[in-house]
């Protein structure tokens, strides 16, 4: 089962950002798939750490592109990025401390965040970029 699904309406109009969105979703699903049946604590930790790093890097790129395009709402957009990173870090800590990863909840949280983020912040950015052309 894949954690997340890419949909075309997620596009914001910056080629490299859209590309990395897809790569990320693919990577998250792949990593998740590779966790294997035994779900060793170590593997899960690696999986979460890798997701955290990749999403951080992706946000760094998206934030640079927003600033380069003088997007006026990059502040609130970035704050939403931070919210997800904090969420993931919470989940990481929870797993690290108690060895628990509620995969369904995790999957739901990620999916919810993505859906919400794409619907609001990314859509707004998409609109802004269209007016800039």
């Amino acid at each position: 089962m894949s954690l997340l699904e890419w949909r075309d309406e997620f596009r914001i109009g910056i080629a490299e950002v859209d590309h990395e969105h897809q790569v990320l979703i693919g990577l998250i699903n792949d990593l998740h798939g590779a966790l294997g049946a035994e779900r060793s604590r170590e593997r899960v930790e690696e999986f979460l750490g890798e997701i955290f790093a990749r999403i951080s890097a992706h946000f760094a790129l998206e934030e640079k592109d927003m600033q380069a395009r003088r997007y006026s709402e990059s502040g609130t957009h970035k704050a939403d990025h931070e919210r997800l990173l904090d969420d993931i870090r919470d989940i990481m800590d929870e797993h690290s401390e108690h060895g628990i990863l509620d995969e369904d909840a995790f999957s739901a949280r990620l999916a919810a965040w993505f859906a919400d983020h794409f619907r609001t912040h990314d859509a707004r950015l998409h609109k802004y970029l269209q007016t800039q052309r």
């Binding site: 990593l31 170590e42 930790e45 690696e46 999986f47 979460l48 750490g49 890798e50 955290f52 790093a53 990749r54 951080s56 890097a57 946000f59 760094a60 990481m92």
Partner: peptide, 16 residues
């Protein structure tokens, strides 16, 4: 570098 995070451990921890 955002990928230079020690929470990663997958295979090798190689940052950008």
């Amino acid at each position: 570098c955002p990928t230079a995070t020690p929470f990663r451990r997958a295979s090798a921890l190689v940052p950008g």
